[in-house]
Amino acid sequence: MSETNPCTAVPPEQGQPDESSEQFRPVVAAEIANPNDALLADTEPPISIQPEIKKYQALDPRYIIVERISWGIFGGVILSVAIGGSLISIFADWPPTKLHWLILAGVFVVIGLMFWAVYSLPAAAHRHASWRIDESGLDIRRGILWRREITIPRARVQHTDVRQGPLERRYRIASLVIHTAGTHAASITLSGLAVPDAHWLRDVLISEVKASGDAV
């Protein structure tokens, strides 16, 4: 396994064979096929980062679906309350007046806007979000109108979580939460990673935590 083949060197995700995301996985060095090896070896930083990954990587496209569903659920709850409320208000003092029709029209406009937002905003968020990792640290870009580019120096990572909600589990993506000793950005969430990517990133970042001591 010492040879590095950029096409086959993807770490196999145990228990979850997943063909569909093959082309979105980062190309990583072969030595970390088993993440435990990386943790056991404590001499050199055992994880070498391929040059391909030093460019910005897009998030997993399944992130769009997950976001649409979760925002759709959220919007659905709000919408049903709004529709129910306006219907009750109309039926309560039947026959409806002009105001009631206005309210109903407003509700329909809100429905339209919500559909548009739920459909297009996750895609836009996906388009504007990306990440990369190199020797100096992890870079994350995100935000549609208000954009933010975060850099976390590798030596400053305190600990990391890989988090998966039920929807994320269903679509085999995960969120990586990186904790630093900072105040305003004490925990930084990078969601929409393919599960193997999230585990790989966690291992890379943690290998540095082992090497350095107190970061405060």
């Binding site: 109108l145 208000w146 933010r148 850099t151 120096p153 400053r156 900072g182 950005a185 405060v216």
Partner: peptide, 25 residues
């Protein structure tokens, strides 16, 4: 320095500016 980030608001982009933020413990 614990982390560094740049913020670009829509106005920032219009003026080709950015906000540099530095987080410490």
């Amino acid at each position: 320095v614990q982390s560094v980030w740049l913020d670009h608001s829509p106005f920032d982009r219009r003026w080709k500016m950015a906000t540099l933020c530095i987080d410490t413990a």
